[in-house]
Amino acid sequence: MPTTPEPRTPAPDPAPASERRLPGGPVLQDSLTEALSVAFFEELASVGYARLSLEAVAKRAGAGKAAIYRRWPSKLEMTVALISQVAVDAPEITDSGTLRGDVLAFLAETAGALRHRLPSKIIPDLLAESTRNPELAQALFTAVRDTRRVKATGLLERAVGRGELPADVDRELALDFLAGPLYWRLAVVHTPTAPDYLERLTDKLLAAFAA
């Protein structure tokens, strides 16, 4: 005669997906983390890094300053962590099947970022501040510049693999060419561009790569 299995104690409910707990610490709500992140970027764009205060970020997010310190120990660490997250989460560069298509897609994505109201203010400010703050400069170069350049290098390697670029192409210089002219135009001198500007810039870059 079959026996009736003993009832098992239900497993405890997992923590909600919107919460996480630091080791030995309090539960951190993802919704509050997101609110603090949004407030940080808005405040950074508004006042710049030098005048940015964690109190102002917390107030903008409708939270207490302690909520920031439970996540980021300092203004520098908050800045590096959130800027790095944006850089890492940026989409991979489109593989269009051709070098020209890849370069044009890269320029379009970069132009879109530089024209956005927040990056257009934040990026130049952080680069200027990094000339006065070696610690910030090193952290940003490691977290942002290196991450972005690794992704852009993939664009060049695909072109080498397809035979569109020679194997000995100067990758370091090519990466500078990819980012430099567009950044100068949109983020430094803020000059309007014609509808065909990215197309013309793409053609110039391809000619430079082949030189």
Rank of each mutant, 00 (worst) to 15 (best):
P12W: 04
F106A: 12
A61P: 05
V47I: 08
E77V: 06
M78A: 14
P5T: 10
H116D: 15
P14Q: 03
G112E: 02
A159Q: 01
R70C: 06
A159N: 01
A210L: 15
L140T: 06
V150E: 15
T9H: 00
F40A: 02
R162D: 13
I123P: 04
E109L: 11
V80T: 09
E157W: 03
Y183P: 01
T131R: 08
G62W: 03
T202Y: 08
E157G: 00
N133Q: 09
E43K: 09
L107R: 06
L76W: 09
R20K: 06
E77W: 04
L118V: 10
A58F: 01
E34R: 15
D95M: 07
A15H: 02
G163N: 10
D89P: 01
A159C: 01
R132Y: 08
P124D: 04
V88I: 14
A208Q: 13
F40D: 02
G161V: 05
Y49D: 04
G154R: 08
H190N: 09
L136K: 06
V80K: 02
E92L: 13
Y197E: 11
S96K: 02
D89Q: 09
A63M: 08
P195K: 03
L201D: 02
Q138I: 09
R171H: 07
A45R: 11
W72H: 15
S46W: 00
G180I: 01
A187H: 05
F41K: 01
K151H: 08
R158K: 07
P12V: 08
G48M: 11
G64R: 13
E55V: 13
P12D: 06
A11D: 09
A207L: 15
A207T: 11
L140H: 04
L127T: 11
R51Q: 12
P134E: 08
S84M: 02
E55L: 09
P124R: 03
S18V: 13
E19H: 11
P26Y: 04
K204A: 14
A167K: 14
L155G: 04
S74C: 09
S31P: 00
D30A: 14
E172F: 12
E19A: 12
D89I: 02
A58Q: 04
V47H: 03
M78S: 05
V189A: 00
W184D: 00
R8T: 14
R70L: 13
D30V: 11
K75M: 07
P119I: 13
S53N: 01
V38C: 07
E164R: 04
A179Q: 14
P192E: 03
V38S: 13
R171A: 10
F209G: 03
P91D: 08
L126C: 05
I122C: 04
D125W: 01
E129L: 07
T142C: 01
R158W: 06
W72V: 05
G180L: 11
A39E: 08
I68F: 03
F41E: 00
P119K: 12
G180T: 13
P2Y: 12
F141S: 11
W184I: 04
L140M: 10
A50K: 06
R115D: 14
E43H: 10
S74F: 09
L54N: 07
L186C: 03
T191H: 14
G161H: 07
L198A: 13
T9M: 00
A61N: 07
T79K: 02
E6S: 15
L107G: 09
I123H: 05
E129W: 01
E19G: 00
P2D: 11
L99C: 06
F40C: 03
E34F: 13
K151I: 04
L76E: 14
S53I: 00
R171Y: 00
E172M: 10
P7T: 10
